[in-house]
Design a protein around this nucleic acid. Structure first.
Lengths: 236, 236
DNA sequence: CGCCCTGTGTCGGGTAAATGACACAAGACC
DNA sequence: GGTCTTGTGTCATTTACCCGACACAGGGCG
């Protein structure tokens, strides 16, 4: 099996390709990376669970991390699918409280882990670091607010369109780029949007006949993001 | 500097009654209050709008601030009703980006305003302040995550029950206390939960027959929070 | 007092989406 | 090659909730 290379030299380039990290002052960035550890997860392996004590922050280097919520009635709420070079885990850093969600490896994953003490140490030399990390929080808050509005006041098809655009933009992590191929199953999309798999299917068919996307097995290709944006605005 | 206002002693007591502010180191707390201004809003007056440039952070002293979202199709999404001594407006402080929501005075309100430069100045003397303010962000993120889960995977009645409990706890601001009377109309509850006013009415009637609450005009009284919690768990 | 306005109670029809069921296609694995 | 698993397509049925309508109750105010 052509199992992708562990990124010995490449990982620093990947980390720096993210808008947030690239915006950090050199000294703080270096201090963060000083004690970073590479971490490989097997497919389906759990990184942490809701309620766990905080143990540091992470950056996705390769693969996909699935962030999920409770299953109090057997239901799963899928919050996000994180790809490189997205950072996560910083909520617990600020307040020391338990993790809010579960994190799973979807397929084999490679992560960068910066242990809690190392982050604090980096900040000790650059106190403004709390603000930089806070900017990660505001990004997540803003995205979450948007997600709430999508779910509460958009019908199925615009909702799906909106989410595809969000995922394609890397949840706001990239400024310039935009993914063309979204590797998400209809089932997973449904869990994110609280729609049934069948309804997602229906909506995707609509979007395909509009020429906005093309459906593939386990993935969706964006053909015309402008048409997708139009479909998102259609309240009715 | 706070002058010989008759309200002086009063508002400081109110501010300090909040768990977050009370946990601040004395020097930082004092620096924040040093340039605070009292601000009175007329009923229905708008404090800021989505898209506005950031102008500081606020603390509710008296009255209720309504935080609302877009009306892209004429619909309004009600995010929260803030009461004393809740702080808000710190998102834009971190990233300098425009405000995410509209803020309105529900009835006459009194606020404490700390202008952006004053906050930055306070932090200049106490860099750890970014972390303290970041803890405000994590509080909001955690509450928002809970709200998402409520809305996506709870049916109407448990959803109403969950929200009543959330509001009663001051959105997590108080550790000990819990409101007994919730001054919210059924219409407003519906906007928060994305339920129609009629459905909210129905759910409240259910909760009342359970003996959990009592309905009053424009307000709801919690009689038995344990029964409310039970009703929240009922997935079916 | 009568008037208006806001909040509430309640009904019945309409509908978007959930649910359950079943068949099919593409890989993965043996 | 066959068998399993996962993802998809597409019915018909059911249902929770929306929406419009209307009536009533309280409260402020002329």
């Amino acid at each position: 099996m052509p199992h992708a290379q562990p990124l010995k030299d490449d990982w620093e380039r990947i980390v720096r390709s993210g808008a947030w990290f690239a915006s950090l002052p050199a000294e703080f960035a270096a201090a963060l990376l000083a004690n970073a550890r590479l971490l490989t997860l097997a497919p389906g392996q759990q990184l942490f669970a809701r309620g766990d004590a905080p143990d540091g922050i992470y950056c996705v280097l390769r693969g996909v991390i699935r962030i999920t919520g409770i299953t109090q009635g057997g239901q799963e709420a899928l919050l996000a699918m994180l790809e490189a070079p997205q950072w996560f885990g910083e909520i617990a850093l600020f307040d020391g409280a338990p993790r809010t969600h579960d994190a799973w490896a979807e397929g084999e994953c490679e992560l960068l882990r910066i242990p809690q003490p190392s982050v604090l140490n980096a900040i000790a030399h650059y106190p403004e670091g709390w603000r930089e990390l806070g900017r990660l929080l505001t990004q997540k808050l803003r995205m979450t607010f948007l997600a709430v509005e999508e779910i509460t006041l958009l019908p199925a098809t615009p909702r799906v369109a909106a989410r595809l655009l969000t995922i394609a933009s890397g949840y706001g992590t990239w400024s310039d780029r935009s993914k063309r191929i979204i590797g998400v199953s209809q089932e997973q999309l449904g869990l994110m949007l609280s729609l049934s798999r069948q309804t997602v299917n229906q909506s995707l068919r609509e979007l395909e006949t509009l020429g906005a996307i093309q459906r593939n097995r386990g993935a969706i290709e964006i053909l015309d993001s402008e048409k997708l944006r139009e479909a998102r605005e259609r309240t009715a």
